Simulated scan of single mutants.
Amino acid sequence: MGDQDKETIVSDEEETIEKIEPEDIEVEHSDNNENDHAEELAELRKELESLREEKEAALERSLRLQAEYENFKKRTEKEKSAAQKYKSQDLANELLPALDNFERALKVEVNDDNRNLIEGITMVYSQLEEALKAQGIEKMETLNEQFDPNLHHAVMQVEDEEKDSNTIVEELQAGYMLKDRVIRPAMVKVNK
């Protein structure tokens, strides 16, 4: 039954109950005396009032349950959306050490003996980076940026007159973000 049908039934019942006024209730006259009629009428009025209160309480419970259900649905959708948005974080955390090792391997001096090996490592490294980018995981740019404790982890400080204060002068380990979330802060050297 749709919400509109429920509202129609509830409003019809309200109209019916509201139309019945205690004064409108007819009591059959019998040989009983007037006190019996007054007691009967008072009892019927109490019963009517009790029914009105029950109806109001049921309506209030129904509305409260409906609101709780709507809140539950919204909360569940929000959690599902967040889980979907950041689903690749665990995989990224597992792959980042391998990427670091690839970067170290690529820093080796290239000569005729290792040229082909370095080219192969470069290709695999590029494929891994592209796969991570496709999942929304990207390396942070840090050199010459202002130090931000939310994005960077300062492990050293240096004094360089040519650089501005609080500027990153060297990246020791790359930092990565998954969409708008930092999954690993960059380890950097900062100018004092």
Rank of each mutant, 00 (worst) to 15 (best):
K73V: 08
I17R: 10
A98Y: 11
S126V: 06
E34H: 06
L128A: 10
L106F: 09
D12V: 01
M177C: 05
L151M: 12
E56R: 01
E77L: 12
A42S: 15
L95I: 11
A98M: 14
V169C: 02
L95Y: 04
D36K: 09
Q135C: 09
T167L: 05
R61G: 02
F72C: 09
Q146E: 10
K192S: 11
Q127F: 03
L128W: 01
H37T: 15
F72R: 13
I118A: 15
E141C: 03
V188N: 01
E7N: 12
I17A: 10
L63N: 15
N114A: 02
L172W: 06
F72D: 14
L132F: 00
H29I: 12
K133E: 13
N33A: 02
F102S: 12
K80M: 05
Q135H: 11
E47R: 08
K85L: 10
S81R: 13
A92T: 03
E39N: 11
Q66F: 06
R75Q: 12
N101A: 15
R104T: 14
E47Q: 03
D100R: 09
T167F: 01
E54K: 00
E13R: 04
A154K: 07
L51Y: 04
A82P: 00
I121H: 13
S30N: 15
T122C: 02
E129G: 06
L96F: 02
E68T: 01
N114W: 02
H37G: 15
L96I: 12
E129P: 00
V158K: 09
D90F: 07
H29F: 02
L48F: 03
S126K: 14
R75H: 09
L65C: 08
N111A: 06
I168M: 08
A131E: 03
